[in-house]
Each structure stands twice: as structure tokens, then as C-alpha cells.
């Protein structure tokens, strides 16, 4: 069963002079096992939207159901929230316990699992994020490097075996190799745990690599929704919105404008080069 968002509207400070509608009439379904990329300018409503997915915020109007649990209902919300794992941008918001082991077990403990199951899950989660158990289990999370902290924070959510994994800018502030490692890890969980992934990212290149469905938010509304191919064909429009489409998509748009008529939906350098090669061959044959 999926997460279903129906006509969701959310207004901050309803009724006051500062009332601000952050989300307008959003309808969206997140299917089982799907990888959804969520993009939008700062202030487009991305953060507000993902907080609706596990009931941290409730719609002003409309409805969110997680596997049939109505997130407007206080009792059902708890069951729904247990299915949705949420990783926030900075691991520093989450790490608190004495050891990495204890910190990762915080979530599973809250799920009221038994000791043996918790232990099994913590070990499994640490393995999945690439933290060596013997080396890290007894370390304080505050002594870790930035990358290790992020892994620990991820493991803390993974150990809850979420059916839906929601990530807010999971790669922010990491260097290129760190970014790649985290993205590969996320793809890894998805395969091993079969969970759906909703990822918010400013980096369109990362979204282009992994997402099956891309949702573009603009001032609280769904501006466009589709496959990466469809979305990144609109490189110029995205650029205008202050979003930076993948380099290859921008390049393809620029070349098209220059008179090289390339097919739509190119958003990786490799695909672009293939298309250029094909185009060149085609030209020569004429």
C-alpha cells in the first residue's frame, strides 16, 4: 500500500496576519519501493511537504494516508509514522546517546522490539552504512568525522526498517566522494530492504542518477511531475526557476538552441556524448 496525499493544503499561522500558505492542493502518491526525487527552490515547500509524510505536521486541509493510516488521526498517526523513516539534513540534530550502538538502537527501542531483535538490527544497519561494528559500536557519536556522523544518523533510521525512507538533503556539505558513497548507500538500502525512497536534493545530478519519478515544487504547488527524462528536458524552465538542472541537460538545451537537433531527455554526459556521436554519424551519412 502506498503513501497517498490528497488535496493537501498547509498554511502556517492560519488566521493571523502572517498567515502563509506553504503548500497548495498537493496530490501525490508514493508507491511501494519507488525512488522519488523532490526538487524545488528554497521556500518552495519541500521541507513542509516531507514533514507531512510522517505526520510531524498535519494538513490544514486535505489528507495524507500511509498504508491506509490516516495521518490526521492522532491514534493512526503513530502506526503510520512507524512506517516512515525520516533523515534530516544535519546528523547533529539527531545524535545524542553515549555510544554509536545506543544511538542507533534508540529508534528500534521506541518500536518496543525485544533486545535480540534490536541487537540484530543495529548490527545490520551498521553493516549497511559501512560502519565497522568493532571499531564504532562503542565510540561516542560526537567524536566521529562528518561523514561517519552521517552514516550513524542514517543507520539510526535504517534500523527501524522503514517502509518509506524520507531524506532531506542527505548529501549536503559532503565532498564528491562522500556524496557518491551516501547515494550508493541509499540505493543499497532500497535494494536490500525494499523500501521506497523520497529524496529532497538541490543536486539535480544526484536526482538524475537515482530517481524514477521527479516532483518539482514551485511556490507550494506541484509545478511538474514525471520521469527524470521528462523533467530534465525542461532545462531552460528549471534554470529560470533558480534550480540548476544537470550539466548535461543544460548543455543539450544549449546545443539545441545552437542548431544541433538532439533528442530530448539527455541528462548525463555519457548519454549526451552517445547522442552527439549518433547525430554526427547521421549528418555524415546524409
Amino acid at each position: 500500500m502506498p503513501i497517498v496525499i490528497e488535496n493537501l493544503t498547509y498554511t502556517y499561522q492560519t488566521g493571523s496576519v502572517n498567515a502563509f500558505t506553504a503548500l497548495k492542493d498537493i496530490s501525490l502518491t508514493i508507491e511501494d519501493g519507488e525512488f522519488v526525487g523532490l526538487i524545488g527552490h528554497t521556500g518552495s515547500g519541500k521541507s513542509t511537504l516531507i514533514q507531512q509524510l510522517n505526520g510531524l505536521m498535519q494538513p490544514t486541509s486535505g489528507r495524507v494516508t500511509v498504508d491506509g493510516f490516516d495521518m490526521n488521526d492522532k491514534k493512526q498517526r503513530k502506526s503510520g509514522r512507524a512506517l516512515v523513516g525520516m533523515v534530516f539534513q544535519y546528523p547533529d540534530y539527531q545524535l545524542f546517546d553515549e555510544t554509536v550502538y545506543k544511538d542507533i538502537s534508540f529508534g528500534p527501542k521506541n518500536l518496543k522490539l525485544d533486545e535480540a531483535e534490536i541487537d540484530r538490527r543495529v548490527r545490520e544497519a551498521m553493516r549497511l552504512v559501512g560502519l565497522d561494528f568493532d571499531e564504532f559500536a562503542e565510540k561516542s557519536p560526537f567524536e566521529l568525522s562528518g561523514g561517519e556522523k552521517r552514516r550513524t544518523a542514517l543507520a539510526g533510521i535504517i534500523a527501524m526498517y522503514p517502509k518509506y525512507l524520507v531524506l532531506d538533503e542527505p548529501m549536503a556539505g559532503l565532498d564528491p566522494s562522500g556524496r557518491k558513497a551516501v547515494l550508493e548507500m541509499i540505493e543499497g538500502f532500497r535494494k536490500q530492504l525494499g523500501c521506497a525512497v523520497v529524496m529532497v536534493s538541490h543536486s539535480m545530478d544526484d536526482i538524475a542518477r537515482s530517481a524514477e519519478k521527479v516532483v518539482v515544487l514551485r511556490s507550494g504547488e506541484i509545478f511538474k511531475m514525471g520521469t527524470p527524462r521528462e523533467i530534465f528536458s525542461m532545462a531552460d524552465e528549471l534554470n529560470e526557476m533558480g534550480l540548476e538542472p544537470p550539466f548535461a541537460a543544460r548543455m543539450a538545451a544549449s546545443l539545441r538552441r545552437g542548431g544541433i537537433d538532439l533528442p530530448h531527455g539527455l541528462y548525463t554526459n555519457e548519454a549526451l556524448v552517445d547522442a552527439l556521436e549518433a547525430w554526427k554519424r547521421g549528418e555524415k551519412h546524409v
Binding site: P176, S177, G178, P246, F247, N269, V273
Partner: peptide, 17 residues
């Protein structure tokens, strides 16, 4: 652990191919 800018990567690919 570093990268080259996408533009340089593309330029090299174009040359290679």
C-alpha cells in the same frame, strides 16, 4: 576522492570519442 567539473569531463569524453 575529488572530481572534475562536468564541463571538463564532457570535453574529455568528446575528445576521446
Amino acid at each position: 576522492g575529488l572530481d572534475v567539473p562536468a564541463a571538463i569531463e564532457l570535453r574529455e569524453l568528446l575528445k576521446e570519442r
